[in-house]
Simulated assay, not measured.
Amino acid sequence: MRAITESDIRTSFVNCSKGEAKRLGLPKDLDEQPWEELDFLGWRDPGAPERTYLVSERDGRLVGIALRVTSGGGRGFTSRSMCSLCLTTRTGGGVALMAARRTGEAGRLGNTVGQYLCSDLHCSLYVRGTKESVAGGGLEESLSLEEKVTRLHANLNAFLDRITQ
Rank of each mutant, 00 (worst) to 15 (best):
M1I: 08
M1K: 06
R2Y: 01
A3H: 12
A3L: 03
T5N: 08
E6G: 10
S7F: 06
D8Q: 08
I9E: 02
R10W: 06
S12D: 06
S12V: 06
F13S: 04
F13G: 05
N15M: 07
N15V: 09
C16W: 08
C16Q: 12
S17P: 09
S17K: 10
S17W: 08
E20C: 02
R23I: 05
R23W: 02
L24I: 15
L26M: 12
P27S: 05
K28N: 10
K28L: 09
L30H: 05
L30S: 05
L30E: 03
P34K: 13
P34V: 09
W35H: 08
E36L: 09
E37M: 06
L38Y: 03
D39C: 12
F40K: 01
F40V: 02
F40E: 00
G42T: 04
W43I: 05
R44F: 04
P46N: 05
G47D: 14
P49E: 08
R51T: 02
T52E: 05
T52A: 13
Y53K: 06
L54R: 10
V55I: 11
S56A: 15
S56E: 04
E57I: 12
E57W: 09
D59S: 14
D59T: 08
G60V: 08
G60Y: 04
L62T: 07
G64H: 07
I65E: 00
I65R: 00
A66V: 09
A66H: 14
L67H: 05
L67M: 14
R68K: 12
V69H: 07
V69G: 04
S71P: 02
G72Q: 12
G72E: 15
G73R: 15
G74D: 15
R75E: 11
F77Y: 13
T78L: 14
S79L: 05
S81G: 13
L85Q: 03
L85H: 04
G92E: 08
A96V: 14
L97V: 07
M98D: 00
A100F: 05
R102E: 07
T103C: 14
E105Y: 11
A106Y: 04
G107D: 06
N111G: 06
T112P: 01
Q115C: 15
L117Q: 00
L117G: 00
C118Q: 03
S119L: 08
S124A: 11
L125K: 07
Y126G: 00
R128Y: 02
G129E: 03
G129F: 02
G129R: 06
T130S: 11
T130R: 14
S133V: 02
S133G: 09
G137F: 10
G137Y: 10
G138H: 04
E141F: 04
E141P: 00
E141R: 08
S142A: 14
S142E: 04
L143I: 00
S144N: 10
S144F: 02
S144W: 04
L145G: 03
L145V: 12
L145R: 10
E146F: 02
V149M: 03
R151I: 01
L152W: 00
A154S: 07
N155I: 08
L156D: 01
N157Q: 12
F159N: 01
D161C: 10
D161S: 14
R162W: 02
Q165M: 11
Q165K: 13
